[in-house]
Nucleic acid binder design. Structure first.
Lengths: 147, 147
DNA sequence: TACACTGATGATAATGATTATAAAGTGAGA
DNA sequence: TCTCACTTTATAATCATTATCATCAGTGTA
Protein backbone atom coordinates (compact mmCIF):
# COMPACT_ATOMS: atom_id res chain seq x y z
CA UNK A 1 0.00 0.00 0.00
CA UNK A 2 2.51 2.60 1.08
CA UNK A 3 5.02 0.88 -1.21
CA UNK A 4 2.68 1.62 -4.07
CA UNK A 5 2.41 5.26 -3.10
CA UNK A 6 6.16 5.55 -2.86
CA UNK A 7 6.61 3.91 -6.23
CA UNK A 8 4.02 6.20 -7.80
CA UNK A 9 5.69 9.22 -6.29
CA UNK A 10 9.11 8.18 -7.54
CA UNK A 11 7.68 7.57 -11.00
CA UNK A 12 6.06 11.00 -10.99
CA UNK A 13 9.38 12.57 -10.13
CA UNK A 14 11.30 10.59 -12.73
CA UNK A 15 8.72 11.50 -15.36
CA UNK A 16 9.28 15.18 -14.69
CA UNK A 17 13.02 14.74 -15.06
CA UNK A 18 13.95 14.80 -11.40
CA UNK A 19 16.79 12.56 -10.39
CA UNK A 20 16.10 10.11 -7.60
CA UNK A 21 18.81 10.41 -5.00
CA UNK A 22 19.05 8.37 -1.82
CA UNK A 23 18.14 11.47 0.16
CA UNK A 24 15.05 12.10 -1.92
CA UNK A 25 14.03 8.51 -1.61
CA UNK A 26 14.39 8.62 2.15
CA UNK A 27 12.58 11.92 2.59
CA UNK A 28 9.66 10.76 0.47
CA UNK A 29 9.53 7.45 2.26
CA UNK A 30 9.45 9.21 5.60
CA UNK A 31 6.71 11.58 4.48
CA UNK A 32 4.57 8.71 3.29
CA UNK A 33 5.07 6.53 6.34
CA UNK A 34 4.65 9.39 8.79
CA UNK A 35 1.23 9.99 10.27
CA UNK A 36 2.38 13.14 11.98
CA UNK A 37 2.66 15.86 9.34
CA UNK A 38 6.34 16.45 10.06
CA UNK A 39 8.26 19.71 9.91
CA UNK A 40 11.45 20.04 7.89
CA UNK A 41 13.37 19.66 11.11
CA UNK A 42 11.46 16.52 12.07
CA UNK A 43 12.49 14.98 8.79
CA UNK A 44 16.06 16.12 9.19
CA UNK A 45 16.29 14.61 12.66
CA UNK A 46 14.54 11.40 11.67
CA UNK A 47 16.99 10.76 8.86
CA UNK A 48 20.06 11.85 10.77
CA UNK A 49 21.08 8.31 11.65
CA UNK A 50 20.82 7.08 8.07
CA UNK A 51 22.33 10.20 6.53
CA UNK A 52 24.72 11.72 9.06
CA UNK A 53 26.04 14.16 6.48
CA UNK A 54 22.75 15.36 5.10
CA UNK A 55 22.26 19.08 5.34
CA UNK A 56 19.03 20.83 6.37
CA UNK A 57 19.20 22.64 3.08
CA UNK A 58 18.80 19.32 1.31
CA UNK A 59 15.61 18.68 3.21
CA UNK A 60 14.25 22.10 2.30
CA UNK A 61 15.42 21.84 -1.29
CA UNK A 62 13.72 18.55 -1.79
CA UNK A 63 10.56 19.50 -0.02
CA UNK A 64 10.29 22.29 -2.52
CA UNK A 65 10.93 19.85 -5.36
CA UNK A 66 8.13 17.65 -4.07
CA UNK A 67 5.85 20.65 -3.63
CA UNK A 68 6.43 21.69 -7.23
CA UNK A 69 5.72 18.17 -8.39
CA UNK A 70 2.45 18.28 -6.46
CA UNK A 71 3.42 15.30 -4.32
CA UNK A 72 3.07 17.06 -0.99
CA UNK A 73 1.30 20.02 0.55
CA UNK A 74 2.67 22.61 2.90
CA UNK A 75 0.69 23.42 6.02
CA UNK A 76 1.45 26.68 7.78
CA UNK A 77 0.10 27.83 11.09
CA UNK A 78 0.84 31.01 12.91
CA UNK A 79 4.47 31.39 13.84
CA UNK A 80 5.32 27.70 14.01
CA UNK A 81 7.30 25.82 11.38
CA UNK A 82 5.63 24.61 8.25
CA UNK A 83 4.48 21.04 8.21
CA UNK A 84 4.36 18.80 5.18
CA UNK A 85 1.69 16.38 4.21
CA UNK A 86 1.90 13.74 1.55
CA UNK A 87 -0.98 14.30 -0.85
CA UNK A 88 -3.39 11.41 -0.94
CA UNK A 89 -7.13 11.88 -1.12
CA UNK A 90 -8.87 15.08 -0.14
CA UNK A 91 -9.03 15.71 3.54
CA UNK A 92 -8.99 18.57 5.96
CA UNK A 93 -7.12 19.02 9.22
CA UNK A 94 -8.13 19.60 12.80
CA UNK A 95 -5.40 21.03 14.99
CA UNK A 96 -5.07 20.97 18.76
CA UNK A 97 -4.59 24.47 20.14
CA UNK A 98 -2.69 23.02 23.11
CA UNK A 99 -0.25 20.47 21.73
CA UNK A 100 -0.35 21.13 17.99
CA UNK A 101 -1.37 17.62 17.04
CA UNK A 102 -2.87 17.46 13.57
CA UNK A 103 -5.54 14.92 12.75
CA UNK A 104 -7.10 14.35 9.35
CA UNK A 105 -10.82 14.21 8.73
CA UNK A 106 -12.82 13.75 5.60
CA UNK A 107 -15.51 16.08 4.43
CA UNK A 108 -16.93 16.78 1.00
CA UNK A 109 -15.22 19.67 -0.74
CA UNK A 110 -16.68 23.11 -0.19
CA UNK A 111 -17.50 23.92 -3.78
CA UNK A 112 -20.43 26.12 -2.88
CA UNK A 113 -18.17 28.33 -0.80
CA UNK A 114 -15.75 28.61 -3.67
CA UNK A 115 -18.56 29.56 -6.02
CA UNK A 116 -19.91 32.17 -3.69
CA UNK A 117 -16.49 33.67 -3.09
CA UNK A 118 -15.82 33.78 -6.79
CA UNK A 119 -19.18 35.31 -7.53
CA UNK A 120 -18.89 38.02 -4.90
CA UNK A 121 -15.28 39.00 -5.48
CA UNK A 122 -14.74 38.35 -9.16
CA UNK A 123 -11.74 36.14 -8.42
CA UNK A 124 -11.02 33.06 -10.47
CA UNK A 125 -10.84 30.40 -7.75
CA UNK A 126 -8.03 27.87 -7.65
CA UNK A 127 -8.33 26.17 -4.29
CA UNK A 128 -9.28 26.62 -0.70
CA UNK A 129 -7.96 25.79 2.69
CA UNK A 130 -9.96 24.81 5.71
CA UNK A 131 -8.73 24.04 9.18
CA UNK A 132 -10.60 23.40 12.36
CA UNK A 133 -9.05 24.26 15.71
CA UNK A 134 -9.88 22.78 19.07
CA UNK A 135 -8.64 20.61 21.89
CA UNK A 136 -7.67 17.01 21.30
CA UNK A 137 -9.03 14.32 23.63
CA UNK A 138 -5.66 13.88 25.36
CA UNK A 139 -5.25 17.57 26.14
CA UNK A 140 -8.90 17.82 27.15
CA UNK A 141 -8.48 15.07 29.72
CA UNK A 142 -5.22 16.53 30.96
CA UNK A 143 -6.88 19.89 31.57
CA UNK A 144 -9.79 18.18 33.27
CA UNK A 145 -7.56 16.32 35.71
CA UNK A 146 -5.24 19.26 36.31
CA UNK A 147 -8.09 21.45 37.57
CA UNK B 1 -19.09 54.46 11.95
CA UNK B 2 -15.42 53.72 12.23
CA UNK B 3 -15.31 56.22 15.10
CA UNK B 4 -17.78 54.04 16.92
CA UNK B 5 -15.67 50.97 16.32
CA UNK B 6 -12.58 52.74 17.59
CA UNK B 7 -14.42 53.95 20.66
CA UNK B 8 -15.76 50.47 21.38
CA UNK B 9 -12.31 49.01 20.99
CA UNK B 10 -10.77 51.54 23.32
CA UNK B 11 -13.50 50.88 25.87
CA UNK B 12 -12.90 47.16 25.65
CA UNK B 13 -9.24 47.71 26.32
CA UNK B 14 -9.84 50.07 29.20
CA UNK B 15 -12.31 47.64 30.73
CA UNK B 16 -9.68 44.94 30.76
CA UNK B 17 -7.23 47.25 32.51
CA UNK B 18 -5.11 48.12 29.49
CA UNK B 19 -3.75 51.62 29.42
CA UNK B 20 -4.52 53.65 26.31
CA UNK B 21 -1.31 55.13 25.00
CA UNK B 22 -0.98 57.33 21.93
CA UNK B 23 0.75 54.47 20.14
CA UNK B 24 -2.07 52.05 20.92
CA UNK B 25 -4.61 54.58 19.82
CA UNK B 26 -2.82 55.10 16.53
CA UNK B 27 -2.27 51.41 15.82
CA UNK B 28 -5.90 50.62 16.48
CA UNK B 29 -7.07 53.52 14.40
CA UNK B 30 -4.91 52.38 11.53
CA UNK B 31 -6.16 48.81 11.80
CA UNK B 32 -9.75 49.95 11.71
CA UNK B 33 -9.34 52.38 8.85
CA UNK B 34 -7.22 50.05 6.79
CA UNK B 35 -8.89 47.88 4.20
CA UNK B 36 -5.70 46.05 3.44
CA UNK B 37 -5.06 43.59 6.28
CA UNK B 38 -1.70 45.16 7.11
CA UNK B 39 1.42 43.41 8.36
CA UNK B 40 3.22 44.59 11.48
CA UNK B 41 5.70 46.30 9.25
CA UNK B 42 2.97 48.04 7.25
CA UNK B 43 1.68 49.50 10.47
CA UNK B 44 5.13 50.47 11.62
CA UNK B 45 5.85 52.27 8.36
CA UNK B 46 2.44 53.93 8.21
CA UNK B 47 2.87 55.45 11.66
CA UNK B 48 6.50 56.38 11.21
CA UNK B 49 5.75 60.00 10.38
CA UNK B 50 3.51 60.48 13.41
CA UNK B 51 5.72 58.49 15.79
CA UNK B 52 9.29 58.75 14.56
CA UNK B 53 10.58 57.11 17.72
CA UNK B 54 8.21 54.21 17.85
CA UNK B 55 9.89 50.84 17.91
CA UNK B 56 8.80 47.78 15.95
CA UNK B 57 8.62 45.98 19.25
CA UNK B 58 5.86 48.35 20.30
CA UNK B 59 3.85 47.42 17.25
CA UNK B 60 4.29 43.72 17.94
CA UNK B 61 3.62 44.14 21.65
CA UNK B 62 0.40 45.96 21.05
CA UNK B 63 -0.79 43.69 18.30
CA UNK B 64 -0.48 40.90 20.84
CA UNK B 65 -2.39 42.96 23.38
CA UNK B 66 -5.17 43.47 20.86
CA UNK B 67 -5.13 39.80 19.94
CA UNK B 68 -5.53 38.82 23.58
CA UNK B 69 -8.38 41.26 23.95
CA UNK B 70 -10.05 39.67 20.93
CA UNK B 71 -10.06 42.92 18.99
CA UNK B 72 -8.10 41.64 16.02
CA UNK B 73 -7.27 38.41 14.29
CA UNK B 74 -3.97 37.20 12.97
CA UNK B 75 -3.84 35.83 9.44
CA UNK B 76 -0.88 33.71 8.47
CA UNK B 77 -0.05 32.42 5.04
CA UNK B 78 2.91 30.37 3.98
CA UNK B 79 6.20 32.02 4.67
CA UNK B 80 5.00 35.59 4.43
CA UNK B 81 4.50 37.91 7.38
CA UNK B 82 1.38 37.68 9.46
CA UNK B 83 -1.39 40.08 8.63
CA UNK B 84 -3.82 41.56 11.09
CA UNK B 85 -7.49 42.08 10.65
CA UNK B 86 -9.76 44.11 12.87
CA UNK B 87 -12.57 41.85 14.03
CA UNK B 88 -15.95 42.99 12.88
CA UNK B 89 -18.59 40.59 11.65
CA UNK B 90 -17.79 37.09 10.50
CA UNK B 91 -16.19 36.91 7.14
CA UNK B 92 -13.71 34.79 5.25
CA UNK B 93 -10.85 35.77 2.99
CA UNK B 94 -10.01 35.14 -0.62
CA UNK B 95 -6.36 35.62 -1.48
CA UNK B 96 -4.78 36.26 -4.84
CA UNK B 97 -2.04 33.74 -5.59
CA UNK B 98 -0.30 36.30 -7.79
CA UNK B 99 -0.29 39.58 -5.92
CA UNK B 100 -1.33 38.56 -2.42
CA UNK B 101 -4.34 40.85 -2.26
CA UNK B 102 -6.83 39.79 0.36
CA UNK B 103 -10.52 40.43 -0.12
CA UNK B 104 -13.27 39.72 2.38
CA UNK B 105 -16.40 37.80 1.55
CA UNK B 106 -19.33 36.79 3.66
CA UNK B 107 -20.58 33.28 4.05
CA UNK B 108 -22.53 31.59 6.79
CA UNK B 109 -20.33 29.87 9.35
CA UNK B 110 -19.46 26.26 8.65
CA UNK B 111 -20.96 24.75 11.77
CA UNK B 112 -21.72 21.45 10.11
CA UNK B 113 -18.06 21.01 9.23
CA UNK B 114 -17.10 21.74 12.82
CA UNK B 115 -19.59 19.21 14.07
CA UNK B 116 -18.41 16.53 11.71
CA UNK B 117 -14.78 17.14 12.55
CA UNK B 118 -15.55 17.00 16.24
CA UNK B 119 -17.59 13.85 15.87
CA UNK B 120 -14.97 12.02 13.84
CA UNK B 121 -11.89 13.03 15.80
CA UNK B 122 -13.15 13.47 19.35
CA UNK B 123 -11.76 16.99 19.50
CA UNK B 124 -13.59 19.76 21.31
CA UNK B 125 -13.87 22.38 18.57
CA UNK B 126 -13.02 26.01 19.21
CA UNK B 127 -12.93 27.64 15.82
CA UNK B 128 -12.09 27.15 12.20
CA UNK B 129 -10.30 28.91 9.46
CA UNK B 130 -11.22 29.00 5.83
CA UNK B 131 -9.44 30.68 2.99
CA UNK B 132 -10.04 30.58 -0.71
CA UNK B 133 -7.19 31.05 -3.16
CA UNK B 134 -7.39 32.24 -6.69
CA UNK B 135 -6.55 35.02 -9.10
CA UNK B 136 -7.95 38.48 -8.61
CA UNK B 137 -9.56 40.30 -11.54
CA UNK B 138 -6.61 42.65 -11.94
CA UNK B 139 -4.04 39.86 -12.13
CA UNK B 140 -6.34 37.82 -14.36
CA UNK B 141 -6.55 40.65 -16.88
CA UNK B 142 -2.83 41.32 -16.67
CA UNK B 143 -2.08 37.69 -17.50
CA UNK B 144 -4.63 37.78 -20.31
CA UNK B 145 -3.05 40.83 -21.94
CA UNK B 146 0.53 39.66 -21.36
CA UNK B 147 -0.04 36.49 -23.35
C1' DT C 1 3.20 68.67 45.00
C1' DA C 2 6.45 64.95 45.65
C1' DC C 3 6.94 59.90 45.70
C1' DA C 4 6.54 55.35 44.48
C1' DC C 5 4.66 51.73 41.81
C1' DT C 6 3.35 49.50 37.72
C1' DG C 7 2.98 49.12 33.20
C1' DA C 8 4.60 50.89 28.45
C1' DT C 9 8.03 52.17 25.34
C1' DG C 10 12.34 52.15 22.70
C1' DA C 11 16.83 50.40 21.40
C1' DT C 12 18.97 46.53 20.54
C1' DA C 13 20.31 41.78 20.80
C1' DA C 14 18.77 37.13 20.18
C1' DT C 15 16.19 33.45 18.09
C1' DG C 16 14.62 30.35 14.74
C1' DA C 17 12.97 29.05 10.29
C1' DT C 18 14.13 29.36 5.80
C1' DT C 19 16.92 30.73 1.72
C1' DA C 20 21.13 31.90 -0.82
C1' DT C 21 25.76 30.92 -2.15
C1' DA C 22 29.52 28.51 -3.58
C1' DA C 23 32.43 24.56 -3.58
C1' DA C 24 32.66 19.67 -4.09
C1' DG C 25 30.35 15.34 -5.46
C1' DT C 26 27.70 12.20 -8.57
C1' DG C 27 25.64 10.02 -12.45
C1' DA C 28 24.14 9.67 -17.37
C1' DG C 29 25.46 10.12 -21.91
C1' DA C 30 29.00 11.11 -25.69
C1' DT D 1 37.01 8.32 -19.65
C1' DC D 2 35.37 13.22 -20.09
C1' DT D 3 31.96 16.41 -19.60
C1' DC D 4 27.87 18.63 -18.20
C1' DA D 5 24.04 19.35 -15.52
C1' DC D 6 22.08 18.43 -11.44
C1' DT D 7 22.68 17.50 -6.20
C1' DT D 8 24.44 17.82 -2.02
C1' DT D 9 26.89 19.91 1.69
C1' DA D 10 28.53 23.52 4.61
C1' DT D 11 27.89 27.83 5.86
C1' DA D 12 26.51 32.51 5.70
C1' DA D 13 22.67 35.53 5.18
C1' DT D 14 17.93 37.03 5.67
C1' DC D 15 13.80 38.18 7.75
C1' DA D 16 10.01 38.11 10.96
C1' DT D 17 9.34 37.92 15.52
C1' DT D 18 10.58 37.79 20.47
C1' DA D 19 13.33 38.81 24.57
C1' DT D 20 15.87 41.90 27.44
C1' DC D 21 16.44 45.77 29.92
C1' DA D 22 16.95 50.53 30.86
C1' DT D 23 14.16 54.51 30.60
C1' DC D 24 9.77 56.82 30.65
C1' DA D 25 4.87 58.02 31.86
C1' DG D 26 0.52 57.83 34.39
C1' DT D 27 -2.01 57.00 38.42
C1' DG D 28 -2.79 56.74 43.25
C1' DT D 29 -1.31 58.18 47.77
C1' DA D 30 0.62 60.85 51.47
Amino acid sequence: MSEVRLKDALDTLKDSGVRITPQRHAILEYLISSESHPTADDIYKALESDFPNMSVATVYNNLRVFLNAGLIKELTYGDASSRFDFVTHDHYHIICDDCGTIVDFHHPGLEEVEHLASHVTGFKVNSHRLEVYGTCPICASRVATTN
